[in-house]
Design a protein around this nucleic acid. Structure first.
Lengths: 198, 198
DNA sequence: GTCTATACAAAGATAGAC
DNA sequence: GTCTATCTTTGTATAGAC
């Protein structure tokens, strides 16, 4: 025990930062707002994390992991059949994104404004070249580059979340309708992928 | 003729602003940089457009139009068959996005941070409820909510551009490979959609 | 470890000469 | 219409008391 550290101040900051960065992006987020959101003072923020940029890097790595980590883990799992993999990917992502709807836009957007920060955080080549799922895709659909199929899984799963603000703000769907739509897609996407891979 | 207006200063500013806003987002873009990019002075920027926010709104409406406008136009065209519509949508978007790869991330990201600015710029309900394409989709695939199919067209077309920085920065694809991948998808996506809609 | 107060830098907006 | 110089606001970071 060192000092008066009230439980998880550090965690509270990270949580607040994660929330605001996700909503507003790096440049759009003010350190004062992070402090306030965390129920803390600006100076304390700097005590824990040295700078805004440093705090951001930590949040960013965390979010990127969250978005792609589960996906990758399934991709390289030698125990699962292709069909099981696809089901798991869709299911896991749906659950994750229902809880973190801004995650994809945030991560993609920040990678765009600063691609350098992203490189080398993941070894994507390993995933895209030698992974279990790539072998299975080649075998099942020899006529088509597996990259296309990987993209399709991601696309069909993630796109509703990318367009979510549009769907909702245009009142085409309420938040509840939206959740139902995702629920439906959990069953539909594996079917569609099956058709596409024939 | 009023004063010394050297050709299209206004246009030059809009172009510079469009470029920078697309890359860095609203908050990440500095008016000074826009001025420099336009080969101009900060003060002149304010002479033409009153404020950063005002300039942004104009750029944003322009970009959103660009991203969705063609899509919508095809969606409501009573002359085109469903198959022709899908082909046109995929083709048009591929061409547009090859030229403006950051467009989707930018538009989606800014809508997320400020959904209010977006509402009422388009009447989406009209598109999603009564348009020609919705009728055609209902007829062709009575068992499935047409929203799913609309999302799928968008998803399959746009997702490669959303993940482009990842694909390229991880050296899975060079910029040239990427263009070829898009070229391939122009033919593949209509086929896939046909399978899905059966 | 947490706070108040403040320094310092960056960025948006404006005044006024030409 | 365009510029230089400057004001003002905002946002990050730090000093120092408790």
């Amino acid at each position: 025990m060192e000092g008066t550290n009230k439980k998880g101040t550090e965690e509270k900051i990270l949580e607040a930062a994660g929330k605001l960065f996700s909503q507003k992006g790096y440049a759009g987020t003010k350190t004062r707002d992070i402090a306030e959101e965390a129920g803390l003072n600006l100076a304390s923020l700097n005590y824990y994390f040295r700078s805004k940029e440093n705090l951001f890097k930590i949040v960013m790595r965390d979010k990127t992991m969250k978005l792609f980590g589960g996906f990758f883990k399934v991709a390289v799992d030698e125990e699962l059949s292709l069909e099981e993999k696809i089901e798991k990917m869709v299911e896991n992502h749906a659950v994750l994104l229902l809880d973190n709807p801004y995650l994809p836009i945030f991560v993609m957007s920040e990678i765009r404004s600063n691609p350098k920060l992203f490189v080398n955080n993941f070894d994507l080549k390993e995933i895209f070249e030698d992974s279990s799922i790539i072998k299975q895709l080649r075998e099942k659909s020899p006529g088509i580059d597996p990259i296309h199929l990987m993209l399709n899984i991601l696309a069909l799963t993630i796109m509703p979340f990318i367009t979510r603000p549009i769907l909702i703000s245009a009142a085409v769907k309420t938040a509840g309708d939206f959740d139902q739509l995702i629920e439906d897609r959990k069953k539909l996407i594996p079917k569609w992928m099956e058709l596409i891979m024939e």
